[in-house]
Design a protein around this nucleic acid. Sequence first.
DNA 1: TTGTAAGCGTTATCAG
DNA 2: CTGATAACGCTTACAA
Lengths: 351, 351
Amino acid sequence: MSRPTYDDVLRVSSPTEEASAERRPVRIEEVARLAGVSPITVSRALRNPKMVSEARRERIRQAVEATGYFSNPHAKALRSGQSDIVAAFVSNILSEQFSLAVEGLAEVLEPAGFQVVLSRTSYSYKRETTLVRSLTATRPAAVFITGVMELEANRSFLRGLGVPIVESWAFARDPIDMLVGFSNTDGARMVAEHFAERGYRKVAFIGRSGGRGALRRKSFAMHCERLGLQVQREITRDTVSGVPEGREAMRSLLEENHDVQAIFCASDLLAIGGLLEARERGLRIPDQLAIAGFGDSTLAEEISPGLTTIVADSRNIGTQAGELMLKRLRGETPERTQKHVPIELVYRGST
Amino acid sequence: MSRPTYDDVLRVSSPTEEASAERRPVRIEEVARLAGVSPITVSRALRNPKMVSEARRERIRQAVEATGYFSNPHAKALRSGQSDIVAAFVSNILSEQFSLAVEGLAEVLEPAGFQVVLSRTSYSYKRETTLVRSLTATRPAAVFITGVMELEANRSFLRGLGVPIVESWAFARDPIDMLVGFSNTDGARMVAEHFAERGYRKVAFIGRSGGRGALRRKSFAMHCERLGLQVQREITRDTVSGVPEGREAMRSLLEENHDVQAIFCASDLLAIGGLLEARERGLRIPDQLAIAGFGDSTLAEEISPGLTTIVADSRNIGTQAGELMLKRLRGETPERTQKHVPIELVYRGST
DNA sequence: TTGTAAGCGTTATCAG
DNA sequence: CTGATAACGCTTACAA
């Protein structure tokens, strides 16, 4: 490969900007001096304006502006035992749905002065445990979890933190604290019912063996039985559920030569992988094989045929979680601490 | 909608776990007492084991284990003036490419004890400036930017921080500090050359008006001129480049009734939006209209026809950035502080 | 190699 | 409503 060409990146200069001077941070004391008050008054004016007289409040505001003061989050957290950090446990930051939830969460929390910090658990209990334990020192203001924490030890640990905690992505009984979730059980039921309506009788399941995968598998199997559908095969994997895993699972399934008309894949990416694999092997979809997913990936709509799947509003999960947290952080008591998020089956060409 | 069904979420209990006792954090002093040494020795053993004798090191290790000690990051940052935080400026956390880079970055930095914290700039100079200024107080160990910082004020501010900084996603001259990027200019040239080879003469451009969009537009226009292609129309938007924006831009373009054979969209999502819109309007792709993108979205491969696009290894950008940072944080001097990432044109059905 | 003393910048506490 | 004082838990600087 030849020498790369340089990009002429745009540079925007603000003419008012002084030269790159010293970066010594401004401390609260400097602001106080400028405003002619004591440091603690500045602190109060910033955190709880009502505690400070109108006149001083204004002088302090100007001094903050003039100095470009930002309070030191470490000092604040150290002394007060509470940081502005909201810890978000995400099993997989590449997941579109989880990213949307984090986006929604951040949109609500950032204007209130909190910072969302991601903890990538990578579907590992061990990592999760380490990360949970480190929270005692980090002292987050609240904790969000894309999912439900399964390890009892971690659950009780989090509860002991004494901060608002929101679990999500399932409609579980007795959450650690608060919950914003949908019923995986109902979602899987809807798929089973949809298969029955479409006249498919011999079905199969592909999904992760733990967590939501297990919930969806169990409910699917139960409702298939109820509706007289025969589950010919269940393929479960404990790896991340991506397109490659979906392809691989579909490959095994097809090579086993089962007599299957429709497959429920417990995540959209699995389903899309499966769909691609099946298509490449010359199967007509949905005539020779129907496929349904779970999760509302954007891909589900763009692929052809479009993927029939269960859809929930991921961003909204984050938004609601943020709102619950804020209420609690303000000392209010939300009337409901378990929010139910509606889901629906979107019928597209793959079934 | 009827009452949701509860999910029976799996709960895993570790039998060895004691009851949910007090959550009072363990301090370094407690570890020191248990190991029979002074706190500062524990501190040293944890940060720089070589400074402490073998025997004590082992006793301290055991004491840390026994107590479940985690050092308080706020106290550490406050006193040392340096935190374990690596700040990652991401314009859009929903971008698959940026998420991959962050994933790569985190994979390298976390084992070394650093924590990657995302700052969502949302393509806003104002937000970016606020976030940059807040770094003086946060005292990050290093800064990663998915892109090149354009505001001179912010550039000099970051430089003044005195920590390793890695810009990316462009092969720019004089970065703030270090750089891991590819040439957008070359990428756009490759598209122009590809259009020429395929015999398209009348072309158009769709992209964001600033940042990388501008780089790609400029280079594309230049090379079109060189190759004798006529750029009939350039549609630029200053919004986020998603599928809806692509649809909308394609709609305007088609309604203007230009005589266009091929369109270069400066991002894959724009291209995919454009492709969907064109297809829905009955245009045969690529016969009646060819479309190329930039960026290697997974969608590009799955959609039909597949999208011809410029591909770089996003995760690798993050990995390399992490490695550069670690070297500097260890006091080493990397021989090259500007890494070039190769790109290639992947030819699929859309052109 | 180890320890002592001091202080990072903020806020809880208590007094006015 | 405002201020003085001390303390959060750690690490730097210096001493032994």
